[in-house]
C-alpha cells in the first residue's frame, strides 16, 4: 500500500521514567495511504510513544520526522502546525463550545488566525468552509449548534476526528478512537477511518483487535517498550513471537 516514502518516522525513540524504560529504541514509519496500527498489551508503552510522537514528551534519544522534517525539538503546538492531526484517548474537546465552534477552532489553528479580535469566528467564510467540510466527513452536519458537552460518547469521538480533519494534517495520530464505542458506533467509525486513510495516513493505537485486523495495512506490536514485530496483518497473526507475547496461542 502507498509509496515507500515515510511521511511520519520515529527513529530510535527511547524514553525512561526513572529506572523504568517506557520506550526502547522504537523505530516505525507511516507511509502515504496506509493505516499503521500500533498494538500491545497494557503497559507496553503505547501512550508514551504517542506522547513522544505528538510532542508532549521529549525523548531521551532518537528523533521524530514529519514530512521529512526533524520535529524532535518542536513542542506539541508546533508539531500540530507542521501537520500532525491528533485525536485523544479520552475525548478532549471544548465542552462549552458548540460542535461548529470546536471545528472552527481547528480551522483557526490551521489558518494561523487566532489573533483576530473583531471579525466573527462563525461568519468567516474560509473558517466556516473548512469546519463544515470536516463535520460533514465525520457525519456531524446535523449537530452544528449542539454544545459538545451534550454530545453522546460516540459523537464526541467523531468530533475529535472532525477537529483533526480541519487541520488538513499530513498524518493522523489516533489514540484508541474506538474506546467505549458500541458495536454499531465502532462499525460506523471503522468506515470513516477506512476512507480517511486516503486523505492522510493514520497511525492508529487500538485495543479492539477486530478493528485493527479489519483496517490496518501494517501492524506493529509493542511489548515492554520495544517493537517486536512489524508487518501486514497476516504476517503478524502468524508471527510466533507475537502469538506468545501478546495474542495468546489460542487466537487463530
Amino acid at each position: 500500500m502507498g509509496d515507500a516514502t515515510p511521511i511520519l518516522e520515529a527513529r530510535g525513540l527511547s524514553k525512561r521514567f526513572g529506572a523504568i524504560p517506557a520506550s526502547r529504541a522504537v523505530t516505525l514509519d507511516l507511509r502515504a495511504g496506509e493505516i499503521h496500527a500500533l498494538i500491545g498489551p497494557n503497559g507496553a508503552g503505547k501512550s508514551t510513544l504517542i506522547k513522544l510522537i505528538a510532542g508532549d514528551l521529549t525523548p531521551d534519544e532518537g528523533s521524530v520526522y514529519l514530512g521529512g522534517l526533524d520535529v524532535t525539538a518542536l513542542g506539541t503546538a508546533a508539531r500540530a502546525r507542521e501537520g500532525l492531526g491528533r485525536t485523544f484517548q479520552i475525548s478532549s474537546l471544548i465542552p462549552e463550545a458548540s460542535v461548529l465552534q470546536n471545528a472552527t477552532l481547528g480551522a483557526l489553528g490551521r489558518l494561523g488566525q487566532p489573533y483576530r479580535f473583531f471579525s466573527r469566528a462563525l461568519r468567516d467564510r474560509a473558517l466556516r468552509r473548512t469546519a463544515e467540510a470536516a463535520l460533514a466527513t465525520v457525519g456531524l452536519e446535523e449537530l452544528h449548534q449542539t454544545r459538545s458537552a451534550e454530545l453522546s460518547h460516540g459523537q464526541r469521538r467523531q468530533l475529535e476526528i472532525g477537529v483533526a480533519l480541519t487541520l488538513a494534517p499530513k498524518v493522523f495520530l489516533m489514540d484508541e478512537p474506538m474506546a467505549g464505542l458500541s458495536a454499531e458506533g465502532a462499525r460506523q467509525l471503522t468506515g470513516i477511518l477506512s476512507d480517511l486513510r486516503r486523505t492522510a495516513p493514520i497511525l492508529l493505537v487500538e485495543h479492539d483487535m477486530d478493528v485493527v485486523f479489519a483496517l490496518a495495512d501494517r501492524i506493529s506490536v509493542l511489548v515492554a517498550g520495544e517493537i517486536i514485530a512489524t508487518g501486514p496483518p497476516d504476517a503478524i497473526r502468524a508471527d510466533p513471537a507475537v502469538r506468545s507475547a501478546y495474542l495468546g496461542e489460542a487466537t487463530p
Binding site: 505528538a54 503546538a77 491528533r86 462549552e96 477552532l105 488566525q113 483576530r116
Partner: peptide, 21 residues
C-alpha cells in the same frame, strides 16, 4: 471573534488548543 473562541478554549482545555497548533 476568533480570538475570543481561542481564549475560551485556553480556559477550558489547553491540550486541545495545543493539538490544533
Amino acid at each position: 471573534s476568533p480570538f475570543g473562541l481561542t481564549l475560551s478554549a485556553a480556559r477550558q482545555n489547553e491540550a486541545r488548543l495545543r493539538a490544533v497548533g
